[in-house]
Nucleic acid binder design. Structure first.
Length: 479
RNA sequence: CGGGAUGUAGCGCAGCUUGGUUAGCGCGCCUGCUUUGGGAGCAGGAGGUCGCGGGUUCGAAUCCCGCCAUCCCGACCA
């Protein structure tokens, strides 16, 4: 039935409306009572947990340890690093009243934890033997952003922040690149996104960092999403917080530090990378349910079908497949099909009297046409193969989409056209003022200096000065 | 902070211009019966301080003043 209230606004009609309707209708989130806050519902939180588990494993496997630092930070800490406070001051939430009285010193709700981690590192590090110190924390942070968007930029968000201290700048740089690889691998292998890894231009750097790196993913509206970021701080924070060690030669030296983060924004990235007009499309590695079984038939028929469905679910679960049996009696099969398509389940299995008689189950993929009857005897192997193929297909599709919407350009009109529908690879002079002009005219910003870009020189796409980075930059409109 | 819009049942909306009995509709929810291979049908039922505060009036969801909140588009940003 074509009841207008069902379904969601098509992407082409209004991408933002599509996104907002989808995240709520698919049961991922609800809005919180405070502006810009969101309640992450079980289905959405499970996706986050799967991302979290995957990344946490990568972090621990490389010698990092999890710790937890306090939510409240003395305001004075933030002021220790000049650029840092300047960058974050406008978006801080500050507690000025507690325990029934005004506080002597206001407490900042962490927007990020460099300062308090730095303070503690200074206490814990005294010798070169204490280095490197490799820490990570999973936490929430609060930033009073001007323009919230569900998952992409919420007032409070969940993330992971790595903080490390090293002897040599080289070591800290290697760490910065290692963390970038975590994100690139997570995004590619697990989220089936196809981001470009690269360095931020000086104008886009993290407040207080010497160098900032990023992975930039392309959403289906052609815009860019920063999906993970790593920072080489040099000695900036070490000097601000007194993070010093005595070297083997007996000299007192400052550490080189790094920080790096991946947030719940990534969930929004997954949605906008793969979703379509029917709803979510989840990569199997992140799908709360990889397979949903819809039993068909009722009454006497159900007496045969339901036990068979339960058995099928058990076999799939035993094979390591996250399986859900949709045994809701009051809902019709058609409703369930649409519901699970909205919720992005990669594979649906239908099991009814006709299937039981034939010894099969009908398999339907979230993308692609048609259904197929699969023998029950070999179904677990088949499902495992299908999930793997689905995961690969999504990555290939995301990569193809990104390439199709990225143009290498050498003239301003080409540039304008390219960033209107996707990304442009172009030369830039490196001047901040020139970046600003480009942004004012096209809404596009330099997303990154791609790591894998070919060495090349040319003239700035905007002002014709010589290129500053020895290769083309990726430009795009960003979230 | 600039521009635009909206606040009426869990959700989506109508009613407001031209004030007037118990404030409606669709979806959802509850009960019963019938249904179930692509968003089921019928019958009955529950659910509302009409965002908040003033004002005008015999009478305000409706008119006037003020306030608050949220959403969308920009600037800021993971």
């Amino acid at each position: 039935m074509a009841d207008g209230h069902r379904g969601i606004t098509p992407q082409r009609e209004d991408f933002s409306a599509w996104y907002n309707e989808l995240v709520t209708k698919a049961g991922l989130v609800d809005r919180g009572p405070v502006r810009g806050t969101m309640v992450i519902r079980p289905y959405g939180y499970r996706i986050w947990e799967l991302l979290q588990a995957d990344l946490d494993e990568r972090i621990k496997a490389t010698g990092h340890q999890n710790a937890y630092f306090p939510l409240l930070i003395p305001e004075s800490y933030l002021r220790r690093e000049a650029e840092h406070i300047e960058g974050f001051a406008p978006e801080l939430a500050v507690v000025t009243h507690a325990g029934g009285k005004d506080l002597d010193e206001p407490l900042v709700i962490r927007p990020t934890s460099e300062t308090i981690v730095g303070e503690m590192m200074a206490k814990w590090i005294s010798s070169h033997r204490d280095l490197p110190l490799l820490l990570n924390q999973w936490s929430n942070v609060v930033r009073w952003e001007l323009r919230p968007r569900l998952f992409l930029r919420t007032t409070e968000f969940l993330w992971q922040e790595g903080h490390t201290a090293h002897i040599a700048a080289d070591d800290a740089m290697a760490e910065t690149m290692l963390a970038l690889a975590f994100y690139q691998d997570l995004a590619t292998q697990t989220a089936a996104m196809s981001p470009i890894a690269g360095e931020k231009t000086p104008g886009e750097r993290f407040a207080g960092a010497e160098r900032t790196f990023t992975i930039e993913a392309m959403m289906r509206d052609g815009r860019a999403l920063q999906a993970g970021t790593t920072h080489f701080m040099g000695e900036n924070f070490a000097r601000a917080f007194g993070i010093q060690y005595t070297s083997s030669a007996g000299e007192l030296r400052f550490c080189n530090t790094t920080s790096w983060g991946m947030s719940s924004r990534m969930v929004g990235g997954v949605i906008m990378t793969h979703g379509d007009d029917r709803g979510l499309v989840l990569p199997p590695a992140l799908a709360p349910y990889q397979v949903v079984i819809v039993p068909l038939g009722r009454g006497d028929q159900a007496q045969d079908v339901l036990p068979a469905a339960i058995d099928l679910a058990a076999r799939l679960t035993a094979a390591g497949v996250r399986t859900h049996l949709d045994d809701r009696e009051q809902l019709s099969p058609g409703f369930k099909f649409n519901d699970w398509e909205l919720r992005g389940v990669p594979i649906r299995l239908e099991l009814g009297p006709r299937d039981l008689a034939a010894g099969t189950s009908v398999l339907a993929r979230r993308l692609g046409e048609g259904k197929e009857a699969v023998p029950l005897a070999s179904i677990t192997e088949r499902v495992v193969d299908e999930l793997s193929a689905f995961q690969d297909m999504l990555l290939a599709r995301a990569t193809e989409f990104r390439e199709l919407h990225t143009a290498t350009v050498d003239t301003w009109p080409q540039f304008v056209a390219a960033v209107a529908r996707g990304w442009a690879r172009a030369f830039h002079c490196g001047q901040k003022a020139c970046e600003d002009e480009i942004k004012a005219e096209t809404a596009a910003t330099p997303r990154c200096i791609p790591l894998d870009g070919e060495p090349e020189t040319g003239l700035c796409i905007r002002c014709d000065l010589p290129s500053a980075y020895g290769k083309r930059l990726v430009f795009g409109r960003a979230y």
